[in-house]
């Protein structure tokens, strides 16, 4: 019995310590703020996550390359990606991109994945919710966004 308790406690501590030590690696992506602060070493493949800035999506003439702004509502960064974007990619949507930062400060992505949130509703409800928010004065609409 005592042996069991000691074993459980010991392994628990070991796992907790290991997880604490690995904190940085368990994080799937870095934020644009971390990149702006220079916390992400350059010339290395890493993932960046954030929201696609509204009105920032620019398709190049080749029809395949897309430039868009990525923000964590604090800092933004330009992401360039050549290839087919996932269906859920749209303005305001959360995405995770993997790639490298070039000298110009543009994040050149090799892969772009779409995130989605924990909200599920029919299109009609989403539309009426948006209508309701748009009808509110701006300050209230902002408040409403925080508590959907």
């Amino acid at each position: 019995m005592i042996f069991t308790v000691v074993l459980v406690a010991g392994l628990g501590c070991a796992v907790a310590l290991a997880l604490y030590g690995m904190r940085q690696n368990i994080m799937l992506f870095h934020t644009p703020s971390e990149v702006a602060a220079g916390e992400v070493p350059g010339n290395r493949l890493f993932r960046i996550g954030g929201l696609v800035v509204a009105g920032s999506v620019i398709k190049a003439d080749d029809g395949l390359t897309t430039d868009f702004g990525l923000t964590d509502l604090n800092q933004s960064i330009t992401v360039r990606y050549t290839g087919l974007l996932p269906d859920l990619f749209r303005e305001g949507q959360g995405i995770v991109a993997q790639g490298v930062l070039n000298e110009g400060g543009v994040f050149v992505a090799q892969e772009v994945l779409a995130k989605h949130d924990e909200n599920y509703m029919p299109p009609e409800v989403a539309a009426s919710l948006k209508e309701y928010r748009d009808s509110l004065p701006k300050s209230m609409a902002e408040y409403g966004r925080k508590a959907p």
Binding site: L28, G49, V96, D117, E118, Y120, P122, A147
Partner: peptide
């Protein structure tokens, strides 16, 4: 760890659904 993984660390997986709340994050019809 599984339950809070999406809260503690940045992930691709969505955050936990808020079901026990006045405004659940999933519409009643779903």
């Amino acid at each position: 760890i599984i339950h809070y993984s999406v809260t503690w660390w940045s992930s691709l997986h969505q955050p936990n659904m808020q079901l026990i709340s006045k405004t659940p994050s999933v519409h009643p019809s779903m």
